[in-house]
Computed example of a mutant assay.
Amino acid sequence: MSRNRARLAAAGAAVALAVTGASGVAVADTAPAAPTGSAVVHENTTFLKDSAVNGLVVIPLPSATPSYDGTAGFSATFPVAGGSVNLPAYYGNVQLGGGLLFINVFTGKSAVFKQLAFSADTWQLTGVPVDGTAPVALLDPAGATTVNRAGTTQTLSAADLQVDAEGAQYVDAKLNTSFFKAGQSVGSFSLTFTAGS
């Protein structure tokens, strides 16, 4: 190989490496955007009063955001942390940030749930007990329910939110109470989910 050909080959290799490196940087800079949105669990004043009389408190854990209104009741907003869902077709799963702490102030017993999620397959809000690995169905959206889609954003609004039979049994056992019942009305539920790119 002549000296000129060797120089041209080396130059070509350098250009190829530079282009490959640049495109690698471009791919790293344009990582897919994560989904966004939030789920809001609203506890009405009736449920709040009944649970308080029985010494029961439910506290949202970070990164959930609590809010309270004397007339409307208590709400907790859980940010969307991942997932893929098709609400109108009833399939998929939305992972939520934050957690839930249930406390029985009379007995000192507690239950903590992490890895909260909403499953469109089963239409349930679930959580994994802090000392377990399998999700427990906690709450079920019910009543007048509206599902909408606009572009990449989907919304769900349920006028009623009920305690799931599995969640009632699990939490009652952990807190040493018999307060929670299957179908017990807690308040209402809403979810907004915008798909990532």
Rank of each mutant, 00 (worst) to 15 (best):
T36S: 14
G183F: 02
G70R: 02
P141E: 00
Y170M: 00
P35T: 08
V130S: 15
Q124N: 12
L100A: 13
S67E: 11
A195I: 09
A72E: 13
A72D: 13
A76E: 08
G73W: 00
A52F: 11
Q169V: 07
F102I: 01
A6C: 08
T107L: 08
A165N: 07
G70M: 08
R7L: 15
F193N: 03
N44R: 05
A150R: 05
P135Q: 02
L191G: 00
Q162C: 13
K109Q: 15
S51G: 04
D50K: 12
L56I: 15
A159I: 07
T155A: 03
T20H: 07
T107M: 13
G167P: 01
L56N: 05
G21V: 06
Q124K: 15
G92N: 01
P79Y: 05
A9K: 07
T20V: 15
V105H: 14
G37H: 02
V19G: 01
A33T: 15
A13I: 13
P141W: 01
Y90L: 13
F118L: 01
T177M: 06
T192R: 05
V57N: 06
T65S: 13
T46K: 12
T20E: 08
F106I: 11
A10K: 06
T65K: 15
A11V: 09
F47Q: 05
H42L: 15
G187F: 00
S188I: 02
S188A: 15
K181T: 11
G92T: 08
T146V: 11
S185W: 10
A158G: 09
S38E: 14
R7M: 13
L48W: 06
D140L: 12
G127W: 10
V171G: 04
R149M: 07
N148Q: 12
Q124V: 12
V171W: 00
D164V: 03
A34C: 02
T36I: 02
G196N: 07
V25C: 09
G132F: 04
A144Q: 14
F118P: 01
G143M: 10
A76I: 00
G99C: 01
L138M: 09
Y90T: 12
V15M: 05
G82E: 04
K109M: 13
T65V: 13
N86Q: 11
P60D: 03
V130M: 12
A34N: 09
L175T: 06
V41G: 02
A13Q: 08
A134Y: 00
V57L: 09
V136L: 04
L87Y: 04
L161E: 01
P32E: 14
E43V: 12
K181F: 09
Q169M: 13
W123P: 05
A33N: 09
V85D: 01
S190F: 02
D164W: 06
A120T: 06
S23W: 15
G183L: 02
Q95G: 14
G151K: 00
A28R: 07
G37L: 01
